[in-house]
């Protein structure tokens, strides 16, 4: 009897483990299948990457995704500018300075922050940040790179903080002790020992934050202004790749060119996030080997 239970548990765990691979592969196959006809057929890659004319519903449709790519990149870039120092600072404080109750409370709060739904963040962007930006900077519109970047930065910060903190905690305490016994101050220990020793983990944290930024949809859709535009200032509205898919996919003819073009954006996003996550993974593996 016990033998059956053991066997069943084994199969169950194996299926659970392998399902992740099946899902990833499945998603990739599905997106590619939907987009491939379009990519190989009507799409001009030159236009896709260099034109800002995204008019898939026009009588004479054009599929220039440059503005969307720049939109996603600018919002993500701005978000990282904000959240990388913030999260690394928070991680350093939690891992190296905070003790006891403070530490536990902060960790719980950071984890709670990560659990806020993205539509709520989008709502914050629209109803709080939007009027605030108009008032503070005296600009006509508060939905744009600044707003979306701030929101996205705050959204990416918790996951980066958590992973960076794990990386810092993984540095053996004997290193700190050795450096302190040699007369290093707390800051010297952090700067000369802890951060170099956890470099890979910190880099992985940043990369996962970038991946999170690239993939985020709802909050960016709501806070970015969703206007096709090459931004020249942080107050300009932009449109993100993800937001475009979310906003337009419902109105397309399944299997048509517009449908295919949106899946092409999906392929691009998939490749970018896959590369980022893979890099992060390889980097993390790098630490373990040492």
């Amino acid at each position: 009897m016990a033998w059956y239970v053991d066997r069943a548990a084994q199969v169950f765990v194996f299926v659970g483990g392998i399902s992740a691979i099946v899902f990833i592969a499945g998603i990739f196959v599905f997106i590619t299948k939907e987009g491939l006809d379009f990519v190989l057929g009507p799409l001009s890659l030159g236009e896709f990457f260099t034109s800002i004319e995204w008019r898939p519903t026009s009588n004479n449709p054009t599929y220039g995704a440059l503005a969307l790519i720049v939109g996603t990149a600018s919002v993500t870039g701005f978000a990282m500018l904000l959240s990388v120092p913030l999260s690394l600072g928070a991680a350093l404080f939690i891992a190296e300075f905070a003790t006891g109750k403070t530490r536990e409370t902060l960790k719980i709060l950071v984890e709670m922050l990560a659990a806020i739904p993205s539509v709520v963040w989008g709502f914050v962007g629209m109803s709080i940040m939007h009027p605030l930006i108009i008032r503070v900077f005296d600009v006509p519109l508060g939905l744009g790179v600044l707003n979306a970047g701030l929101i996205l930065g705050l959204m990416a910060a918790p996951i980066m903080t958590t992973i960076a903190e794990d990386a810092l905690k993984a540095v053996p305490d004997t290193y700190r002790e050795a450096a302190e016994a040699l007369g290093a101050t707390r800051w010297e220990v952090i700067v000369k020992v802890v951060v170099p020793a956890s470099r890979n983990g910190l880099l992985a944290a940043v990369l996962l934050g970038v991946g999170r930024g690239f993939g985020e949809t709802m909050a960016v859709l709501m806070a970015s202004g969703h206007a096709i535009n090459l931004p020249t200032s942080v107050f300009d509205s932009v449109r993100a790749l993800t937001a475009t898919i979310a906003a337009e996919l419902g109105d397309t003819v399944q299997g048509g060119n517009h449908w295919g073009s949106l899946f092409t954006l999906g392929i691009l996003l998939f490749i970018v996030t896959f590369v980022i996550n893979l890099t992060a993974d390889i980097v993390v593996r790098g630490i373990r080997k040492k």
């Binding site: 053996p172 004997t174 290193y175 050795a178 450096a179 016994a181 040699l182 007369g183 040492k290």
Partner: peptide, 17 residues
């Protein structure tokens, strides 16, 4: 200054990475 005058060797060798 104390740590400079007094060096310490630990039970398990702990070279920095």
């Amino acid at each position: 200054q104390v740590r400079k005058q007094v060096g310490m060797v630990f039970q398990r060798p702990n070279p920095l990475p």
